[in-house]
């Protein structure tokens, strides 16, 4: 570990490696705070409307597939574990294990996206995409149900976008690790990606019960 750190490149603005690493970690946490507030705005909007339209939101949420949602929850939770392993091995400088678990994490992330894609497709077939072609029975509830699905797509869509960004970042890291690029010699890039990935998982931990498990 000591010898790994010695290889790290020190940027000119920092005094030493410790300061540089701490700065990156604090920076990432600060960024995640902005992310929390970003999703927070959506969550607040959703909760306000859900409290106001408990009945119809319950009806609308029955069009979501709890098994698929649950499966995806498990997938993401597992990916959090594999990400933690990636970070663990990267801190120890074990390149092969690090790469292996990173690839597993990516595979899980892609699984999540594929399942999500099926769910979206299903909504499309059912005519549950908000807009001119939105259909909902009873027609009485169409307006509020459309509100529910607008928020559903906004929240899960924004989350999916974060997953996609995560996959892209991990792909780049995997390539860099594979070719032994000097910029991934130390654990900081993986550590930061790990923080981000856990955040993405936690958002889903809130999204799943909020959207899929509405009590009557």
């Amino acid at each position: 570990m000591v010898q790994e750190q010695a290889q790290q490149k020190l940027s000119i603005q920092f005094e030493d490696i410790a300061q540089q690493n701490e700065s990156y970690i604090v920076g990432m946490w600060t960024f995640l705070v902005t992310e929390i507030m970003f999703f927070g705005g959506l969550f607040a909007t959703y909760l306000v409307y859900r409290v106001a339209n408990q009945e119809v939101f319950w009806e609308a949420h029955r069009h979501l597939s709890i098994p698929l949602g649950f499966f995806n929850t498990c997938v993401l939770l597992t990916s959090s574990l594999t990400m933690a392993l990636t970070v663990h091995y990267s801190q120890r400088g074990l390149r092969k294990q690090q790469l292996l678990w990173l690839l597993v994490t990516m595979a899980l992330a892609c699984t999540f996206l594929v399942v999500k894609g099926f769910e979206y497709h299903h909504k499309f077939v059912e005519g549950l995409i908000p807009g001119a072609n939105f259909r909902f029975e009873p027609a009485e509830h169409m307006r509020v149900a459309q509100l529910f699905f607008s928020l559903y797509f906004a929240m899960t869509g924004l989350h999916a976008l974060h997953v996609i960004i995560g996959v892209l970042v991990m792909t780049i890291l995997a390539v860099l690790i594979a070719i032994k690029h000097p910029s991934v010699q130390d654990f900081i890039p993986i550590e930061l990606t790990g923080l981000y990935w856990h955040f993405v998982d936690i958002v889903w931990i809130f999204l799943f019960p909020l959207l899929y498990l509405i009590p009557r």
Binding site: T30, V33, E35, M37, F38, F39, G41
Partner: peptide
């Protein structure tokens, strides 16, 4: 950091 993301969304 706390406010801007909310107005952005």
């Amino acid at each position: 950091v706390l406010g801007t993301p909310v107005v952005a969304i």
